[in-house]
Simulated scan of single mutants.
Amino acid sequence: MSSYRIAIFASGEGSNFQALVDAAQAGNLGGAQVELLVCDKPAAPVVRRAEKAGIPCHLFIPKEYSSREEYEAEIVNRLEELDVQLIVLAGYMRLLTPVIVDKYAGRLINVHPSLLPAFPGTNAIGQALEYGVKISGVTVHYVDGGMDTGPIIAQRAIVVGTSETEATFAKSVHSVERELYPYVVSLFAQGKVKLEDRLVTIAE
Rank of each mutant, 00 (worst) to 15 (best):
G91K: 14
G14F: 07
K63H: 11
G14W: 08
F119K: 08
E196S: 01
R198Y: 04
A154L: 15
G27L: 04
I152M: 12
N28G: 11
S172H: 05
V173W: 03
Q18F: 05
I125D: 13
R178S: 15
A128P: 01
L187W: 07
T168V: 01
Q18D: 15
D102W: 12
T168F: 00
N123G: 09
Y71I: 08
L195F: 09
V99K: 03
N28P: 08
G146S: 06
G150H: 07
A73I: 01
L96I: 04
Y71T: 03
I135W: 02
E179N: 09
A43N: 14
G12T: 09
S186L: 02
D102K: 15
P113E: 13
N77Y: 02
I61H: 08
I135C: 09
V159P: 01
K192W: 02
S163T: 14
R49S: 01
G31A: 12
V193C: 09
A43P: 08
G121F: 05
A167Y: 08
S67H: 15
D40S: 14
V176Q: 02
Y92Q: 05
R94W: 06
E64K: 00
S15Y: 04
S3I: 02
H174Y: 02
G145P: 03
A73L: 06
L86I: 09
F119Q: 05
E69C: 00
K103W: 09
V21L: 10
S67N: 15
Q33A: 02
G137I: 06
D148E: 10
A167S: 14
M1E: 09
Y181F: 11
V99P: 00
V38T: 14
G146H: 12
I153G: 12
M147Y: 03
E13A: 15
R156K: 13
S136Y: 08
L187E: 08
Y131I: 07
Y104A: 05
L36Q: 06
T122F: 14
E164G: 02
R156P: 04
A26R: 14
S2T: 11
S163N: 13
H174M: 06
V133E: 13
V111S: 15
V159S: 10
P98A: 12
P117C: 14
N77M: 06
